[in-house]
Write a protein that binds this DNA or RNA. Structure first.
Lengths: 103, 103
DNA sequence: CCAATAGTTCGACACTTTTGAAAGTATCAA
DNA sequence: TTGATACTTTCAAAAGTGTCGAACTATTGG
């Protein structure tokens, strides 16, 4: 496995290594599962993803969202005042492939 | 998803978030794939897993191995002077389950 | 016993990460 | 235009991480 591919994977894992970020991502993934299983993407307002993150400030959320996006795990898009988040299916597939034992 | 389960997952992802640790784990996973696919475990001497880790010192390797073991991703066992590493199938399964979209 | 090998523990240092306060920007409603 | 909402940026403090050198332990061969 080439070194820059390892680094990219490590960056994705790093993005999921913080409990708050992982919750954010897992909430989005849960929200998106039905669509993802059918090969579609699923959009979700950021505010819907904040469950279980106990009083964490807006700057921190903003930072975490950026980390997930920079790692290639989610994509974001503005809709007026609000931010829409989606799981990046390619990023998810890359993670799953790295952990796959048969195939 | 319960909070302590999220924390445990986050710890696994953290263990894979460092490129050197990820290489170590991927080398072991590659080495183990045939056996794991058949539901067996695979043992591997630590020294065999050091490929691609460019001049990193023994204390650092030792530290990284412990992080992977503490996270529940590998198990270790002594054989005389040497250390034997194996992928922990339960840890691997937990990671894969967290990233699974259908199922 | 002595020396060599393989790994561990400790202490230190540079660097990164997490978080929040304060101030900033963009959008919308009135 | 004014005010509110929703996020972002910047700065800084506290905590965590990656790495190494030096010293340590355990095991083996002679």
């Amino acid at each position: 496995m080439p070194a820059n591919q390892v680094d990219k994977l490590a960056r994705m894992f790093r993005a999921l290594s913080n409990p708050n970020r992982l919750k954010l991502f897992m909430n989005l993934l849960e929200e998106s599962k039905l669509d993802l299983a059918k090969g579609r993407t699923h959009d979700c307002f950021l505010v819907k993803l904040l469950g279980g993150l106990g009083d964490i400030g807006a700057p921190t959320v903003s930072h975490h969202v950026k980390e997930l996006a920079d790692a290639g795990l989610i994509t974001t898009e503005r809709d007026g005042k609000q931010l829409i988040c989606s799981v990046d299916p390619d990023g998810l597939a890359a993670l799953r492939a790295a952990l796959t034992v048969a195939g």
